[in-house]
Structures are given as structure tokens and as C-alpha cells.
Design a protein around this nucleic acid. Sequence first.
DNA 1: ATCATTTTGTTGACAAGGAAACAAAATCGA
DNA 2: TCGATTTTGTTTCCTTGTCAACAAAATGAT
Lengths: 157, 157
Amino acid sequence: MNKEEQVIMGFRDLLNKLVWLNKYKMEKSLKGYKPTEVHCIEYIGNNVDANVTKLAESFYMTRSAMSKLTKKLMQKGLIESYQKPDNKKEIYFRLTEQGKVIYKIHEELHKEFRERDKAVFEQVTEEQFDGMLSFVEKYSKHLDAEIKKLGIDMKSE
Amino acid sequence: MNKEEQVIMGFRDLLNKLVWLNKYKMEKSLKGYKPTEVHCIEYIGNNVDANVTKLAESFYMTRSAMSKLTKKLMQKGLIESYQKPDNKKEIYFRLTEQGKVIYKIHEELHKEFRERDKAVFEQVTEEQFDGMLSFVEKYSKHLDAEIKKLGIDMKSE
DNA sequence: ATCATTTTGTTGACAAGGAAACAAAATCGA
DNA sequence: TCGATTTTGTTTCCTTGTCAACAAAATGAT
């Protein structure tokens, strides 16, 4: 296996582990709340005027899925919807007080995760950080361009 | 956002894009075959004596899921099962001729993906590669240790 | 050798997410 | 301005994967 694949597969494997472990911890601290739900609460807490479409784009999921998820979160009383006077189509979400509690707990957990992994990041030099970030940026832009090409092809079909 | 989170979230986002894009391309070339199915065929093509358990471990999925997936692939005639004379429990899989065709097409696609992304990787210096690989390795080992801790906690509960 | 434990695979009930069809509102184009 | 197109969100049906319970074979302990 060449280095390119090692990097990609290495990171894929790493993120799998990270997600798995953090999910485990999260289910312990936030019993009854699924990772996706918490993730959704996090996004709504961080972004004003979040709606189904923005959530879907951010999570690489369908509007369909997000519509169902937000519905559930509303039923649980964690988020509430609102509209703007000049727009009767878009529906925005914000956290309820109860939702904010979950948000805070989630934030604390994240702090805990950072603390747990601090030792690893302390070993990384500034050059390595910058190298990784520049790689991510370049590759990401490259893929954006490829996806854009796709968009054109899709409509010309 | 600090650099640590930038790296993690950057890679998460990057992999999401990569998966999404390659999935799209794959569905175009291998119509009727889902990514998981192809992924499974790839594994069986690369590993002799693949069975449900090994597949599950490799894919971070349950045996249950793999049992159903292999069943479907057998019904489609892409893989076939066999056993060893001295073991009546374990069931192994290998590709059929039809399965090998899919395997080859998938291989070609991968080559195409590498070609597509070559330009990005050519810009990465050897130092950057090594930096990333060492980071992945360290972090991965760190998480393995954390997961191991968890295992002890789990049984002591 | 025998009985308990572990490993391996399967099944059914369930939940999450995707695809397609749809309705309602907004925007665009002439 | 007004009809066509696009955007936004919802619902229904379907697929995929998990969990839990299970059966059968292998392994281990005594």
C-alpha cells in the first residue's frame, strides 16, 4: 500500500475509532439521547436560524432524514421552531431550555475528550499541523471542484 | 476553533466528501450494486477464507448485518460459500466468476480515483506524509489504549 | 468423557436514513 | 405581472443495519 492510501485509510480507521469511543462515552453521560440527536442539538446551538436544509447539507444527509429528526427533537421538547414575518416557507429551529442543558453537557464531554487526547496533540509540531491542514484544504477544494463538475454533468444528462 | 479540532473536523469533512463522491461514481459504473456490496466483494476477493465474523470485524459492523449481506450476495450469484472438512461450524466465502467481474470493475474504478486525485498528492512533501502518518499512528494507539481501558470498565460493571 | 463456556452464524423485531412523490411558498423570466 | 421553475419541507415506502434471542458446533475444564 502506498503512502496516499495509508493516509486516507489511516484517517478513516482513526475516525471510526474516535466516533465509536466518543459515542460510547456519550451514551453513558447522555442516556436516552442518540449521537445524531446530540449532534443536531450541537449544530442548532451553534448556528442561528438553522433549518432542515442547512442541517441536511452540514450532515451530508437528506432533508427527509433531518425533517424526521427535528420532528423528534421537537416532540422531546429539546428544540422549538419559529418563522420570520416575511417568509412563510422556511422554518428555523432554536434550542429550548431543556435543549440547552443537553448542549452544555455535550460541551463538557467535548472538553473531557480534548483533555483525554491532549497528550497526543502536544507531540505534534506546528509544522505537522500546518502540513495536515494544508493537505486537508487542498484535497477538499479538489473534491469540491470534482463535485461541481458532477453537478454540471448531472443536469446535462 | 483550535488547530486540533480543525484537523479532526477537516478530515471528517474530507472523508465525507470523498465517500459521497466515490459512491456516486461507483453507482454509475456499477449500476445495481450498492457500495457495501462492492466493498464486501472487494474484501472477499482480497482475503482467502473470509467469513461472516472476519467481515464484521473489518467493517466495524455486526455479524448480523454481514450475515444478511453475504446471503444477498449469494442469492445474486456473486459469491459462494464453502466449508472445510474438519470444521462444520465456520462458513467461508469466495467470489464466483460473476463476482470476479465486479471485483475487476471496482479495481478499475479505484485506479480512476487515484488518477483523479494524483495532482493533490503530488503536492504533498515527504515530510508532510510522514508527519500525517506518525500522527495517525500515535492517535490510533492512544485510542486503542482508551478503548482497552473501557473494556476493563465494561466487565467490572 | 462430560458438561459448561465460547464461538459462529442466523433470525425477527425494530430504528435510522434514503428515494420519490408531493404541497406550498418563493423566485425567476419574459 | 403572471406563469414556469426552484426551493423548502413533509410523508410514504423501502433498504440497511442493530439488538436480542437463539441453535449448533467447537473449545475448555475437570
